[in-house]
Each structure stands twice: as structure tokens, then as C-alpha cells.
Computed example of a mutant assay.
Amino acid sequence: MTTRVRLEISDRVATVRLDAPPLNAFDTGMRRDLADAAGALAADPGVRAVVLYGGPRCFAAGADVKQLAEFGFEEIAGWNRALQQTFTRFAELPVPVVAAVTGYALGGGMELALAADFRIAAEDAVLGLPEVLLGIIPGSGGTQRLTRLVGRATAKELMMTGRRVPAREAADLGIVDRLAGDPYEAALSFAKELAAGPRFAIQAIKEAVDQGADLPIAGGLALERSLIAGLFATADRDTGMASFLRHGPGKATFGEPA
């Protein structure tokens, strides 16, 4: 792992720290390091939750515009596909992902945050997708993930104007789930709570919501039936139900790291 991205794992929670100050801009090196981090997390069964963090001053202020300005059609097509796939790898991790947003989360920075399951932001954080001001559009998931969060009209307004959104407005719109004085500590605490839960049930919930939301209701219900049936083959199901029958709800301690 290079110094652009640091990966730290403790108590079943991984922190992916973007470390390319001052703005954590996404260039080719950052993209490759993020892809490596996502691959390492996907291959580690001991990781039960992930926190994305850009440091105390800035989450990520977007792509390296100097590099973008040098691209033609063929270069951007391949580069953007790779960045889009990298962010999607985080979205598709089989564990909860929490983004701790400080400072600016603009362009690709906001798109990475949108790939997380949850976003906790500092009260003075600023989010936005300003690509239109460069004569382009968000290309790493922003047009799709933002629309699914806030609806078509609001997503179009934010992207067509490229305006920056203060954290409190982002929370009112549903882009941010929670505001915190220290978003990293809040995200880490939440991630630890999630990591203590039953691994496969939480994975199934994520899959049911993410994959089922865009299906017809019948398809979503079929996915739900398949997932719940599979959970009856897990040790966590045995632990949870045995604990409930003996001690009541909320007493189970689920499996240790693999």
C-alpha cells in the first residue's frame, strides 16, 4: 500500500484513510491504491465493517483536474471506467461501509462517499458535484447514486447547478445520515456496533436492500426469501435464536473474527 491510501484494521473494523494532502485528489495513483484497498477488504473475512476517512481537514475534493484536462475521449473512457469500478467495489463490499466526511467532499470525493452505506459528516462539511462547471458530468456513480437518495428533481438541480451543499442541508436532503462534532469517531463507533452483529445477516440485509430496491416487488420478495432461507444454515442464526430463547432479545454475542 502506498502513502496515498492507508489501511488499518482493529477490532474487526477497517479504516481506509485517504492520505494525499491537502485535498486527497483522485489521480491514477490514488485510484489504484483505492482499488488495492477494496480488493484487500473483500478478501479478508475478519473485516466486519469499513470506515472511509480523508483526515480531519478534507474528505476528498475530487479528481485531479490537471490530469483530466490532458485526456481525450479514449483516455477518459478507460480512466473513468476504472474509477467507477473502484468506487463500486466499495459499494459492493459484503460489510457495512461508513463514510466519515470532513471538509470538502466534492466531485469524486462525494461520489466515493455516496458509495458508502452511511455518511456521517462534520457540521462544517461541504458536499457537491460541481463537474458541470468543467463542462462535464459526474462519472463515478454520482448521477445514479445521488438520484436514488434524493430523487430525480433534486439530483438534477444539484448536478446542473454544481452548487456546494452545506452539511446541514445535505442532512435535510438525506445525502448525509448524521452530523457529528468528530465524524471519524462517530463513524468508528457506529462501525464497531455493526461489526459486533451477525456477519451473514448484515450481509444479507445489505444485499436485499441494494439489489432488491430496483427490482419489481415480486423479484425483491423472491430475493428476500432466498436470503432468509440461507441464513438458517449459519452459526449466527443458531447463536441468536438460542440466546433469545434463554435470555430474551439483545443478549447474543456473535462469532469471533474468522
Score class of each variant (00 low, 15 high):
Arg178Gln: 15
Ala122Thr: 04
Lys156Trp: 06
Met110Gly: 06
Arg81Tyr: 02
Thr143Trp: 05
Ala91Lys: 06
Thr147Pro: 00
Thr86Met: 08
Asp172Val: 10
Leu133Asn: 14
Val150Ser: 07
Leu83Thr: 12
Ala153Tyr: 12
Pro138Glu: 14
Gly128Glu: 04
Pro94Glu: 09
Pro96Cys: 13
Pro166Ala: 06
Ala153Ser: 14
Thr102Glu: 10
Asp172Lys: 13
Gln84Phe: 14
Arg152Cys: 01
Gly162Ile: 12
Leu133Val: 12
Arg152Tyr: 05
Thr147Arg: 14
Met159Trp: 00
Leu146Lys: 08
Tyr184Cys: 00
Met160Asn: 14
Ala167Glu: 01
Leu194His: 03
Pro94Asp: 10
Ser140His: 14
Ala115Ser: 15
Ala167Leu: 10
Ala186Val: 07
Val132Thr: 12
Pro94Leu: 04
Ala125Asn: 06
Gly162Thr: 03
Leu127Trp: 04
Trp79Ser: 14
Pro94Ile: 07
Glu169Trp: 00
Leu179His: 01
Leu149Glu: 11
Arg163Met: 10
Thr88Cys: 05
Leu149Thr: 07
Pro130Gly: 07
Ala170Asn: 12
Thr147Leu: 12
Ala167His: 01
Gln84His: 14
Asp182Phe: 03
Thr102Trp: 09
Glu169Gln: 14
Ala180Trp: 00
Pro138Tyr: 12
Glu111Tyr: 09
Arg148Ser: 09
Ala113Thr: 02
Leu179Glu: 04
Glu92Ser: 11
Tyr104Trp: 03
Gly174Glu: 11
Val95Phe: 04
Asn80Phe: 10
Gly142Asp: 03
Leu114Phe: 08
Arg164Ile: 12
Val95Trp: 01
Gly109Phe: 07
Ala116Asn: 05
Phe90Arg: 11
Ala196Phe: 03
Asn80Trp: 02
Pro96Thr: 09
Arg164Asn: 04
Leu106Gln: 07
Arg164Glu: 13
Pro96Tyr: 07
